[in-house]
């Protein structure tokens, strides 16, 4: 069972306290109407599936309840880092 560092609680906690929440740094456009059908399709449905570093979101569901970002290696399953929502991509 992986240990995940919550950047808000600043603690390493077991993964059962957390919920995965998809790829990170996909901001909802401020004006969706300005998106073409193709652009909106990409926003809705296209996600990265890298072999290696993956930027993703987690939520400390059974803890502080905050969503945060993480970099995880999809090969080793090791977390490189976690950081608060709103901070720049790492």
């Amino acid at each position: 069972m992986i240990l995940i560092h919550c950047p808000y609680c600043d603690e390493q906690r077991p993964e059962i306290e957390f919920a995965y929440a998809g790829q990170a740094h996909i901001a909802r456009p401020a004006n969706p109407d300005s998106y073409s059908d193709e652009e909106w399709e990409r926003f809705l449905f296209f996600r990265a599936n890298p072999r290696g570093r993956h930027h993703e979101r987690w939520r400390h569901t059974h803890g502080c309840g905050r969503f945060f970002n993480a970099v995880r290696d999809t090969v080793t399953d090791k977390f490189e880092t976690t950081y608060k929502a709103g901070e720049p991509r790492k």
Binding site: R59, T61, R66, A85
Partner: peptide, 13 residues
Amino acid sequence: LNMMEDYLQTEWP
């Protein structure tokens, strides 16, 4: 509730 928290925390903080 999870969906609302998600939008509130990450899209419209």
